[in-house]
């Protein structure tokens, strides 16, 4: 299976090299970094590490970055896509377990859930996560244990059918709307998340309660677009 690992990245110069190296160590050489209008050297470092890089001239948000990754995969004949965070929160060794059900034809989408087995998620994230899961259930009628997970795998059918219309953080929830809309089969698999000082500092801008309200608004509007 021709698999593309997509890393949406905005100002991740401190971690991106380590993330790419880790992915390569586990045999993932088709790596696409979507440099989403970074003001640091994220793009240059990624290129130096051997990743493919596409650059947004201005910052458009997480959803926009993932959308570009999907479009790149479709244009270049990939039949499997993995989304991976650029802040070092995920472990590359988990990808193999995510791809396995897709390769076996069991499902179209696999979500790596940080809450199925592991404990230790910082409480702020935990609260936001529960709100997000509840909103996904209420608005999109899909039950999930980790609506905001950044580690996901998509098979060919999902790759072709999913249409990303949101540009920011709400894309994580939008995937579930698209799963339901396209009647895709999905599975959740426990993954390990690494919470470092860097990842926490980096997520403070995005995991605030205000951000959650903003995401909620985006989720609601998505239903009418």
């Amino acid at each position: 299976m021709k698999t593309l690992v997509v890393i949406p990245a905005h100002n991740e110069s401190a971690k991106i090299a380590e993330v790419i190296r880790d992915l390569k160590k586990f045999g993932y050489h088709n790596i696409l970094v979507v440099d989403d209008g970074s003001t640091d050297n994220t793009g240059k470092i990624s290129q130096k590490c051997g990743a493919k890089v596409v650059t947004h001239v201005v910052n458009r948000g997480l959803g926009a970055g993932l959308g570009t990754g999907f479009e790149f995969a479709k244009r270049n004949g990939y039949n499997c896509l993995v989304t991976f965070d650029g802040d070092g929160q995920h472990e590359a060794k988990d990808i193999k377990r995510l791809l396995f059900p897709i390769q076996k034809g069991v499902c179209d989408v696999v979500i790596g859930s940080r809450l199925l087995a592991q404990k230790g998620m910082p409480w702020q994230r935990l609260i936001i996560n529960h709100i997000s899961n509840f909103s996904t259930l209420m608005l999109y009628r899909v039950r999930t244990t980790d609506a905001t997970s950044g580690l996901r795998a998509f098979g060919k059918k999902a790759l072709n059918q999913i249409k990303i219309k949101t540009d920011r953080m709400e894309v994580s929830n939008e995937f579930f709307w698209e799963i339901r809309r396209n009647s895709l089969k999905f599975l959740e698999i426990p993954i390990k998340a690494i919470y470092t000082e860097y990842s926490e500092k980096h997520s403070h801008n995005t995991a605030s309660l205000w951000q959650a309200v903003y995401v909620g608004k985006g989720m609601l509007l998505r239903l009418f677009r």
């Binding site: 979507v34 596409v54 001239v57 201005v58 458009r60 959308g67 570009t68 790149f72 244009r75």
Partner: peptide
């Protein structure tokens, strides 16, 4: 107000589509 919000979101998305097109064309 609601309709304006939706139009604004669609317009933002059109800008994203443009940014994406530029990014992918430059790459190819």
């Amino acid at each position: 107000c609601f309709r304006t919000y939706i139009q604004l979101e669609n317009m933002r998305h059109e800008i994203t589509e443009l940014v994406r097109k530029l990014a992918l064309e430059k790459k190819s």
